[in-house]
Amino acid sequence: MNQNKQPGMSLIVQTVARWLKGFIFLYGVYIIFYGHLSPGGGFAGGVIVASTFVLLTLAFGKERSLGKLGKLLASELDSLGALMFLLIAVLGIAWGRIFFLNFIEKAVPTGNFKLFSAGIIPLCNVAIGIKVAASLFMIFIILAVIRVQEVKGRRRLVTTEKRRKE
């Protein structure tokens, strides 16, 4: 699709994407961090953060977006989110012998309806958000770089990504 000289979409799309990417990312982070006080949470915020990178990929072509968040880094972030979630759960065992114990003291020191008021729930939201964002971006980039082409009379799956030297 993007075989011409300038990868990505037209100048208008690129300019608007350049302005909006920070705001979309910030909104996703806000949704993640305030998930226990207002509608949202790790799932919705993670998908919004992933859609920032999807917008970058669609507007500027995949090289630039992969430069910002590579596939290897995305898979590492995916594992990091899952491990962070499990670590929080296991800390509950270490604290009070219950898996997923909410071991941080609630509503201290600021009282309810504040950012630090819900024990482990914001931490879990951050872990889930990192995991969902990384995995959805990874699946998008995989589906975007792969296409079916005719090679020597047979259809082959080819990738347009440059292979890294190992």
């Binding site: 226990h36 949470g41 979630f85 499990l86 759960a89 024990g119």
Partner: peptide
């Protein structure tokens, strides 16, 4: 749980196994 959003308290505290 201290969370004002009851859905968040259900998915991440009472029923965190589901989320796992």
């Amino acid at each position: 749980t201290g969370a004002a959003n009851i859905v968040a308290s259900v998915i991440l505290d009472y029923r965190a196994y589901d989320t796992l």
